[in-house]
Design a binder for these strands. Sequence first.
DNA 1: CGTAGATATTTCAAACTTAAAATATTTGTG
DNA 2: CACAAATATTTTAAGTTTGAAATATCTACG
Lengths: 164, 164
Amino acid sequence: MNKSEALSERAGNETSDLSKARLRAWLQILKVSRKIEGELREKMRLEFGSTLPRFDVLAALYRERDGMRMSELSKSLMVSNGNVTGIVDRLVAEGLVVRMPVENDRRASIVRLTKAGEKDFAERALVHEGWVSDLFSDLSSADADALIRILRNISHHNEAPHHD
Amino acid sequence: MNKSEALSERAGNETSDLSKARLRAWLQILKVSRKIEGELREKMRLEFGSTLPRFDVLAALYRERDGMRMSELSKSLMVSNGNVTGIVDRLVAEGLVVRMPVENDRRASIVRLTKAGEKDFAERALVHEGWVSDLFSDLSSADADALIRILRNISHHNEAPHHD
DNA sequence: CGTAGATATTTCAAACTTAAAATATTTGTG
DNA sequence: CACAAATATTTTAAGTTTGAAATATCTACG
């Protein structure tokens, strides 16, 4: 903490300039995140008749071609278990994923892309990357790197503490 | 576009390194945004028995002490009209805001903080700023400024085009 | 072996969210 | 003035999301 920060934090409850800068940073993250997400949601709906949560599940499964457990999926997407149940139900109804039993554990199931799911996602992912690149067309390569570095710092600091 | 980018974009559908860097940047924004939002949601629930959407509405109204129309609120928060209706209904039930008729326009109504809403929000806002500062405690002043600058660039490029 | 506790998932109720339809009111134009 | 178009908001249906409770199954320990 430097001198002016120390000075501005003298009395118990006042908030420092640094604290205010961090709050502004958070609000700006939120703003960009909402705006981009809104744009992508609309494109996803108009172009593919689908939704972002479903896209996210397909993306996770595309990275793990052998499939994932429900719990792995929800952990990877940072959403609750119950949430993933509903999304996967809809993707199953659309024929894009299947649930398969797990050998030696009848509590669990593994979710996998179907052939159709793989094909659909590969196509959507390309188009999606184009949308993102357009929405971020003012983001230079250097700024992208800076952004990623700064955000990774924040992520790492808030990593869920693992159990021992 | 530099030489290697031009080279890597030769055939129709391949995606450039820049496009991939932008996608990574977007995924990182999303990751941080979800993580922080999850933390804040939980704290808001445990500490105040409330939610982030309600906090956001209170915050907007705290900045506009004379109140805002429903449509101004939804625009300011970048959410749909119907969404705000429900949140405001709950805040009215909690006694934190009121709906008032608008002189000369019986379609509209103005939403304002009550005394209790003002008092509650002022208290919550201080604590909230502290939470954010803790969650971003690895974010230096310089990085906060860089982050804000880069994100503002992105925001501005995606500003909703105003009607004439 | 029996069973208490742990684990994986689903179900549930409540809240949030959107897009579109419905309602109510105002404004502008002939 | 009449009334079509515009505006402000609410309602509705469908989907997403959470946190907690319920189910089903597995594991470990006596």
